[in-house]
Design a protein around this nucleic acid. Structure first.
Length: 437
DNA sequence: TTTTGAGTTGTTCGA
DNA sequence: GTCGAACAACTCAAA
């Protein structure tokens, strides 16, 4: 009789299109396991933890209550559970982020003779696979995307696992939680269907309008693997290039982080190590105003308050508020990145850190450094009627139409601008100039 | 090796 | 209000 296998869930909280799960079930009986690891949970931020717990509850439901929850360091917990049921193998979908890689190596060692099998990853193309002709990783998105498309990926795996194959163990309870987002695989597939039925057709322009529901709202599900990008890619039609590119960006940044794990903290372009930031008392106060959505710039404040209210922010607005923090307040990008990671329900290390680096100018894009967002014109362009601003900034609800973007038309009780954009733009350009080689 | 073409998401200025 | 050019010139990828 074949010994049972463990499927250790991590960033793959679903049952369909799951190659690692199929690999585990191939051997016979399967114990589904999730480990609550404090080293991941503690820095996660409450919103993302709540979403995770809800996803686990959904997964447990889909498993007929058989998900085994353990709490502790996976290096100890996984071998313990394996020993308890006499498992012959532990199957996972590869975690390619810095901590996950290091943890998996420790767990593999601790498992000794028990097989540790990696099948697939949270990406259509596993990070590290797409290379230039000379074997080096790509440093620019567009050529990466071409090579990524040429590389291709497998079709979604259709078959599931026979319910008779599942085995269960008594374990910890999933911590109580209630997320503002519906969690789990079914919710992810429903969101995907809604997006295909609606906003996808007009995605090219619709995705830039925070006043409308023009984006997919799939980020949190992709973060936890409630749906695999391969599933999405298989459903896309020839006209959906822009959305496919967005998925490619996610893969690109995972690839970049895989090759250079230290770029989660350090500048990708090391000449920015000499860049002059503001970190003193005034900068801290301005940073605080930014966090609270009290900068006096309407679209910036709306975005920051949406983040606090919903633990999510529209992508266009993420760029606007990030540009404002880095280029108008001259605050280090990692302050903003950390704030995002604490509050975002979809916070993903690779996408978050590298999008911040892109905005800061120290990231993968070699585009001109003088690209500085104007928070007023961005608001006027992408929230033309002011609906987005009024939704999240109550002090401005009495201001009609596009006037919410005009600084001289705003009421007394709304904060005065923390800085003058034209002046700080000039200041940023001078500081970039100082590190040019 | 050298050369060539190209690079997510922008802003401002002046016609 | 709308449009094209200038910004300033670097780095990457591939022929």
């Amino acid at each position: 009789m074949t010994p049972p296998a463990i499927i250790w869930f991590r960033r793959d909280l679903r049952l369909s299109d799951h190659p690692a799960l199929l690999a585990a079930a191939d051997a016979g009986e399967v114990l589904p396991l999730f480990v609550l690891d404090d080293r991941l949970l503690k820095p996660s931020g409450e919103p993302r933890r709540r979403f995770l717990y809800d996803c686990l509850r959904a997964l447990d439901h889909d498993l007929g209550g058989r998900l085994h929850i353990a709490h502790g360091d996976p290096e100890q917990v996984v071998p313990q559970v394996a020993a308890k049921i006499g498992a012959g193998s532990v199957h996972v979908s590869a975690d390619t982020a810095p901590y996950g890689r290091e943890r998996d190596e420790r767990v593999q060692k601790a498992l000794g003779d028990i097989e540790f099998v990696r099948t697939g990853s949270p990406y259509a193309v596993t990070p590290g696979r797409v290379r230039k002709q000379d074997g080096e990783p790509y440093r620019v998105f567009t050529p990466f995307r071409r090579a990524w498309l040429d590389h291709g990926w497998r079709q979604p795996a259709k078959s599931g696992v026979d319910s008779a194959q599942w085995i269960s163990l008594k374990g910890k309870k999933i911590p109580a939680a209630k997320s503002e987002f519906p969690a789990g695989e079914a919710a992810a597939l429903e969101a995907w269907q809604d997006f295909q039925d609606g906003p996808l057709a007009d995605y090219d322009t619709g995705r830039d309008r925070p006043d409308r529901a023009g984006t997919s709202h799939l980020s949190a599900y992709l973060r936890w693997g409630c749906v695999h990008p391969r599933t999405l890619l298989a459903d896309l039609k020839p006209g959906n290039e822009t959305f496919r590119s967005e998925l490619a960006w996610r893969e690109f940044y995972a690839d970049v982080l895989w090759h250079q794990p230290d770029t989660a903290r350090q500048n990708y372009d090391r000449k920015f190590d000499k860049f002059q930031h503001d970190t003193g008392k005034t900068a801290q106060q301005r940073f605080q105003a930014w966090c609270e959505g009290k900068t006096g710039y309407p679209v910036v404040d709306a975005g920051m308050r949406q983040l606090l209210a919903e633990n999510w922010m529209h992508n266009r607005v993420r760029m606007i508020v990030a540009s404002f923090l880095v280029k108008d307040l001259h605050v280090p990008w990692w302050w903003g990145a950390r704030h995002f990671m604490r509050h975002l329900i979809d916070g993903d290390l690779a996408s978050n850190q590298h999008n911040w680096q892109w905005v800061a100018g120290c990231g993968t894009d070699a585009a001109p450094y003088f690209r500085i967002f104007n928070p007023i014109t961005q608001g006027e362009k992408f929230d033309p009627n002011g609906d987005y601003v009024r939704k999240y900034v109550p002090e401005l609800r009495g201001v009609q139409g596009k006037n919410v973007h005009k600084l001289d038309k705003l009421p007394e009780q709304y904060p005065a601008p923390v800085v003058d954009h034209a002046h700080e733009r000039r200041e940023s350009l001078d500081r970039y100039d100082a590190i040019r080689t």
